[in-house]
């Protein structure tokens, strides 16, 4: 398995280099929305501008590190029939997607970390003082967020065996998650009822939860509860994915050719 991943990572890296420009545009494009949202919030409440600045910078970081595009890839591959090429090979297609995620996210990491560090030199609001263990917890939460988003996106993508243009369904989920994950506003600013819901829904653990950890807004109990609920969702998603994969293969029409 190590060799297989080494080969896949190498290939995905080559592929990424072939798309240099697109990768950069895609990377910077995703930063625009949080920046605009931040500008709006700072305008509404200038006294909190430092807090908002930190929050939305963290949103940019966590959102990039957890982003998932697999549903669009699968949608296209299944609809155009190229997915067959993965099915006939003796390796589950999900590993190709995992390798791709790893390569792109490592790239985001090596771009975003120095950018954050550089910006923190000039902007005091970006400086974080946390212990090593808190940093590790934050990274674990980011990883969990990436896992949840990936699983949801991939599972939705597999629905392409039944429905064409399945990405439309995923877009609806994305809109819900825009609010419940904390991308539009910090979760603490949502109405109490939505805040209540967000604790039990998976979206919070995709973005808002890691930010709570880095900004030290969560206490010990909330951290434990957060990881617990996120893990339960991860298990649910994995089970759904396996079931949909098996049922999907039976349904597969292997179009084209």
């Amino acid at each position: 398995m190590v060799r297989k991943y080494a080969a896949l990572l190498r290939m995905k890296y080559m592929e990424m280099l072939a798309y240099r420009l697109a990768t950069i545009v895609w990377m910077t494009g995703a930063i625009t929305q949080p920046l605009i949202t931040m500008a709006v919030w700072i305008n509404i409440d200038p006294s909190q501008s430092d807090a908002f600045f930190f929050y939305f910078m963290a949103v940019i970081f966590v959102e990039r590190m957890t982003s998932a595009w697999d549903v669009w890839e699968l949608d296209r591959e299944i609809r155009e029939g190229t997915f067959s090429n993965y099915i006939i090979r003796p390796l589950h297609p999900i590993h190709w997607a995992i390798a791709e995620n790893v390569v792109y996210k490592l790239l985001f990491l090596v771009i975003l970390i120095p950018m954050w560090a550089g910006a923190a030199l000039f902007v005091p609001a970006l400086r974080v003082e946390i212990s090593m263990s808190q940093l590790l917890l934050f990274l674990a939460a980011v990883l969990m967020g990436a896992l949840l988003r990936f699983l949801l996106s991939y599972t939705c993508g597999l629905l392409g065996f039944w429905i064409t243009k399945v990405a439309a369904i995923y877009s609806v989920l994305e809109v819900i998650s825009l609010f419940l994950s904390g991308r539009i506003a910090p979760l603490s600013m949502l109405p109490p009822l939505l805040q209540q819901w967000s604790i039990f829904l998976p979206f919070r653990y995709m973005i808002g939860f890691p930010i709570d950890l880095i900004s030290q807004a969560a206490n010990g109990h909330e951290v434990r509860q957060g990881f617990m609920i996120a893990s339960v969702w991860a298990v649910i998603f994995i089970m759904m994915l396996q079931w949909i994969w098996k049922a999907g293969l039976k349904k597969n029409q292997a179009v084209g050719g």
Partner: peptide, 20 residues
């Protein structure tokens, strides 16, 4: 339908297949 990876040389596909 091509199994070759479109934007990189065929040798890369061969290497991936070697591993898989």
């Amino acid at each position: 339908k091509s199994q070759l990876i479109w934007d990189i040389p065929p040798m890369e596909t061969f290497l991936v297949n070697k591993a898989i």
